[in-house]
Amino acid sequence: MKISRILFLLAVLLTAGLGYSQESEGEETLSLESGPISSQFDYVAKKSGNYRADGVRYEVVKEANLYKLRGNVLDSIAAFNKKTSELNSTISEHETTITSLNKKLEETTTNLEAVTEEKDSMSFLGILVSKTTYNLILWTIIAGLFILLGTFIYKFRNSNILTQEAKQNLAELEVEYEDHRRRALEREQKISRKLQDELNKQKKAK
């Protein structure tokens, strides 16, 4: 009986707000065999009678209709629970799919970053460095080679100048040596002639 009263109160609450609107919308086929639960409550309420006793109004509901409505409510709840379970399973599958997609997206992002870094990098002595660093190292080496080349050219020119000066000094020294040797030879010849003259004079004097 408590269940009957609870269901009756639910029927009254549901039908109270819907009675006038349904009447204004026109006649509607009410049944316990089909339609939403709200219309089934309307059907039970419509088929119920009422009476007064001791100044209190009572609603009389057919027990078969009450049990039928109870079964329909339980079936609706079971269907709702089944649908909820199916939705939870679908949500779980979607969450698994989203997790898998997020993992793949993470891997793809990591691979893309690696490819981008490799694209923006150069290998120098087996070490992967950025293009900016690579260009800096390359131009530093080129600048160093130019400095070494300039130093070599400078030293070569200085050496060439020193060599030319040494050759010129040697040529001048050779000229001086030849001049000195010639003068020495002339002095030697003069002395030899004088000595010979003296010898000839001494021979004549004897």
Rank of each mutant, 00 (worst) to 15 (best):
L74I: 15
G35M: 09
T29R: 07
D42H: 07
S21F: 01
T29I: 09
I77T: 06
G71L: 08
S24E: 11
P36H: 07
E23P: 00
K68Q: 13
V56D: 13
G35K: 02
K62G: 11
A64K: 15
V56R: 11
L30T: 02
Y51W: 02
E23N: 00
V61N: 03
I37E: 07
Y51I: 02
P36V: 01
S24M: 01
E28T: 06
D42I: 00
K47Q: 04
S24K: 06
Y20Q: 08
G71M: 06
L32W: 02
L32R: 08
G55V: 08
N65H: 15
E33T: 14
L32S: 07
K62N: 11
G55P: 09
L69W: 07
L74W: 09
Y43I: 00
Q22K: 05
I37T: 10
E25S: 14
S24N: 07
V73A: 12
R57F: 06
E23K: 10
I37D: 03
Q40P: 05
Y43A: 03
S34Y: 14
Y67V: 10
A78I: 10
R57W: 06
G71C: 03
Q22L: 13
K62P: 11
L32D: 06
S39N: 12
G19I: 01
Y43S: 04
S76L: 09
S34C: 10
Y43P: 08
V44K: 06
G26A: 02
S48C: 12
Y51M: 00
V60W: 03
E25F: 05
F41A: 05
N50K: 02
V44W: 06
Q22N: 11
N50A: 15
S76M: 07
D42K: 01
E63I: 10
N81L: 14
L32I: 15
I37W: 07
Y20D: 13
K68Y: 08
S39P: 05
Y67F: 07
S31A: 08
V44F: 10
A45C: 14
G26R: 08
F80T: 09
Q40I: 05
D42V: 02
V56M: 13
E25Y: 04
Q40Y: 06
A53Q: 15
K68W: 07
N50R: 02
N65S: 12
F80P: 00
F80A: 14
K68N: 11
R57K: 11
L74D: 13
R70W: 08
K47I: 03
V56K: 13
R57E: 15
V44S: 10
S39W: 07
V73N: 10
S38M: 03
I77D: 01
S34G: 06
V73E: 12
Q22I: 08
S24R: 12
A53G: 05
K47P: 01
F80W: 12
E28Q: 08
D54I: 03
E27Q: 05
E27G: 09
Y67E: 14
A45V: 15
K68D: 09
Q40N: 04
A64C: 02
Y67P: 00
N72Y: 00
E59M: 12
D42Q: 06
Y67C: 06
L74Y: 06
I37L: 15
E27Y: 10
N81E: 10
K47M: 09
G49N: 10
N65M: 07
G49V: 00
E59C: 05
Y58P: 04
D75H: 14
L69Y: 03
F41V: 08
S31Y: 02
I77W: 06
